[in-house]
Amino acid sequence: MKYLVAGFLALLCGFFLADLVFRQKMPELQPMAQIPFDHSLHGDSIGLDCSHCHGGSHFQSRAHMPSKKDCLDCHRLPLTEKPGIEKLDSLLALSGEFPWNHKNILPEHVVFHHGLHYAAGVQCSDCHRPLDGADYRGGLARGKPYSMQMCVDCHARKTFGEKDFKPAAVYCGACHR
């Protein structure tokens, strides 16, 4: 019985030791992940265009996430009296060069050029508008996950009739590779 207990204890110690030695580091959470970013405070309400923070959204293929420098364009200065602002400033100071984690959901066999759509008169909010009251994040277009059908419907002028977009290409090789 004594040995059984000793063996059990040794096993327990072994687990702790193994944990100590081989412990996997938690992925480092960006400090800014603690901040509930609100698009409604940063967009039209203060006269900012999407492309100010999401560089490339008007002329390049991809609309990028803002870098720390983009945030600091405004947040160098104490902007408001809100109680959260000090926490934000301190976390922003701590964060790395690219404070936002973003996973691109566009499949690799699909081509989507943001600038091309902007040049054709499509507004960011036409595809990225959230449901009423919700914020933009979540990879949803108007509350639904993105799908090829959405692209095709607009390209074939079945949707956005009021916007009077030009008909766009619907052959496979236009958007797929």
Binding site: Y3, G7, A18, F22, Q24
Partner: peptide
Amino acid sequence: DRREFIKACSVVLLMQAFAGCRRV
């Protein structure tokens, strides 16, 4: 004997614990 058997079992389990925690 019984003592050696339990010792051996503990050692085996310990090794497995180590092996299971490897990162790669």
